[in-house]
């Protein structure tokens, strides 16, 4: 019935709100189905696994259904440094990415607004890294920073580095890699917010005695907040769970492991599925809590 109203030549007023509501519901169904199947099912399985106990047979990698909440305590007790490091790295990398991305986004959206060619070129440059796999790009950085690389040798030659200094495996290398990989995710939402900024409001700020800095603080920045919030979320959340950059195969070392690396090790190497699952659930819960506090504190729920 509702589809008839949509497809036919029925006058608009014949469409009661309930019918429109029903059409919307039908349109929602595929999405709900997808979410149910591909998000809730694995989530349920993950929670189930996180509560399993080792099999009585003692065989490695064999577990059976239980309600072993001790897995969570064990996971926290064993991997607290990695948990703290994950959020610390994520926070630091997000702040650095914001500091780098905001001026880029501002320049493209505001300064290059009336220069379509420059604007298009700069936007392409921001997106360009996506043309190459993230793994390859991170691997390239590993080579650039490797121990006998040009970069490290030059730093040694000019005396900044001692003869036994290195970059790969340090906190710096990991944070650098994280910032590098996630800058486009920060830049694009801020750009789209600033792109919609009505520059006449900025002029009005100047007209009302606000100097350029105050105008930025009181008008430009608050109006770009939705972009800043989405950008920081799109950066902070994936970085917290990232396991590529900090991995020993890439830019990390023994002392840079993040939750993602621990989860990977537990799942794939130690085959301690319950601990790995418990860590994953904890990571998710922590992110939900942190993000909801953040969004509420920034007072922009309605803007998102």
């Amino acid at each position: 019935m509702a589809f008839v109203a949509l497809g036919g030549n029925a006058p608009a007023k014949a469409q009661t709100p309930t019918k429109t509501g029903r059409v919307a519901l039908y349109l929602l169904l595929p999405g709900l189905f997808y979410l149910g199947l591909f998000f809730l099912t694995p989530l349920f399985s993950l929670i189930l696994t996180s509560l399993k106990a080792p099999s009585p047979s003692g065989e490695i990698g064999r577990y059976e259904v239980a309600a072993e909440f001790g897995n969570y305590l064990y996971a926290v007790g064993q991997y607290l440094p990695q948990i703290i490091r994950s959020f610390g790295f994520a926070l630091l990398a997000t702040i650095i990415a914001l500091a780098i991305s905001y001026p880029i986004a501002y320049f493209i959206a505001v300064k290059a607004r009336n220069k379509p060619l420059l604007k298009g070129l700069l936007l392409t440059l921001v997106i360009a890294p996506f043309f190459i796999s993230m793994l390859l790009r991170t691997f390239a950085w590993k080579q650039i920073f490797s121990n006998d690389s040009w970069v490290v040798n030059t730093l040694k030659d000019i005396g900044i580095f001692g003869s036994d200094s290195y970059i790969i495996g340090t906190n710096f290398a990991v944070i650098f890699g994280l910032v590098y990989n996630f800058i486009p995710f920060m830049t694009l939402p801020i750009f789209s917010s600033l792109d919609r900024l009505d520059l006449r409001l900025v002029e009005a700020g100047g007209d009302l005695y606000a100097n350029p800095f105050t105008t930025f603080r009181k008008i430009t920045f608050p109006l770009s907040l939705p972009g800043v919030i989405s950008g920081t979320l799109l950066t902070f959340i994936p970085i917290s769970g990232d396991y590529v950059v900090a991995s020993r195969d890439f830019l990390g070392g023994p002392d840079t492991a993040m939750i993602g690396n621990v989860v990977e090790a537990n799942f794939l190497r130690i085959q301690d599925y319950p601990t790995a699952s418990a860590l994953s659930v904890l990571l998710m819960a922590a992110i939900v809590v942190l993000v909801s506090i953040y969004v509420r504190r920034s007072g922009t729920e309605d803007l998102l």
Binding site: D198, L201, E203, A204, D207, N211, P212, I219, L223
Partner: peptide
């Protein structure tokens, strides 16, 4: 600069701050 002038403008589109 605009903010140093004793002048105020009523803009064509009003330019009221939406936030």
């Amino acid at each position: 600069k605009p903010h140093e002038r004793p002048v105020n403008t009523v803009f064509q589109n009003y330019a009221l701050f939406p936030h």
